[in-house]
């Protein structure tokens, strides 16, 4: 509960702070808190992933992007009232809806009684792999993971296409644009 409250506070800070370097640092802290929450929720594999991906790689990537762009956010130019009203309204409706959900940590909810339970009971007979998450990831739901791997592959190709063009070509393109701007 303390961790969750801290996460909410950090989110507020992320919304408010305009120095993007500070925001990226806060995002890293947010990811570590998220990983701790996942530990508490028994999701050890996910916590490990979040700690290495969220706090490690994505922070580095964002810092790289900030280095290539600008590190200050411009002050808001239009009124913030309407977004706040919309956000709070949607939040209130969602909280009202969530009150009917089953309480936290119960074993007999619909979520916990069908497929997950079956996996836990079958995995030692089927595959003899004690870590159920690995077994489900690679074996029972192999298609899913194949798809995710393909998505990562596509993202890698996309970044290469976007960023790996030589600077020579680019500066020429920039020069052309600049000429056009001067003419107008």
């Amino acid at each position: 509960m303390v961790l969750l409250t801290l996460m909410a506070l950090i989110t507020l800070a992320i919304v408010r702070v305009r120095n993007l370097f500070a925001v990226v640092a806060l995002t890293g802290a947010f990811s570590f808190l998220m990983a701790s929450v996942m530990m508490v929720l028994d999701a050890v594999d996910v916590a490990m992933t979040e700690a290495s991906v969220g706090a490690g790689i994505s922070t580095v990537l964002m810092l790289g992007a900030l280095y290539l762009t600008k590190s200050r956010e411009a002050p808001p130019r239009f009124s913030q009232v309407i977004p706040v009203v919309v956000a709070v309204g949607v939040g209130a409706v969602l909280v009202y809806g969530s009150l009917e959900l089953p309480g936290f940590g119960l074993a007999d909810t619909p979520v916990n009684t069908h497929v997950g339970e079956a996996y836990i009971q079958r995995v030692m007979y089927d595959a003899d792999i004690p870590n159920v998450v690995t077994a489900v990831l690679a074996s029972y739901r192999g298609y899913d993971t194949l798809g995710e791997t393909a998505v990562i592959f596509t993202a890698g190709i996309g970044v290469l296409l976007l960023l790996s063009r030589g600077r020579g070509e680019d500066s020429q393109a920039d020069g052309g644009e600049e000429g056009g701007g001067d003419a107008s």
Binding site: A43, D45, S58, L61, V115, D144, V151
Partner: peptide
């Protein structure tokens, strides 16, 4: 329940890949 863990595990890695794009 292991099932949400599997789904979210892949979602995190895919999330950082799309963030990079």
């Amino acid at each position: 329940n292991p099932l949400p863990h599997v789904l979210i595990l892949t979602a995190i890695v895919v999330g950082v890949a799309t963030l990079a794009v």
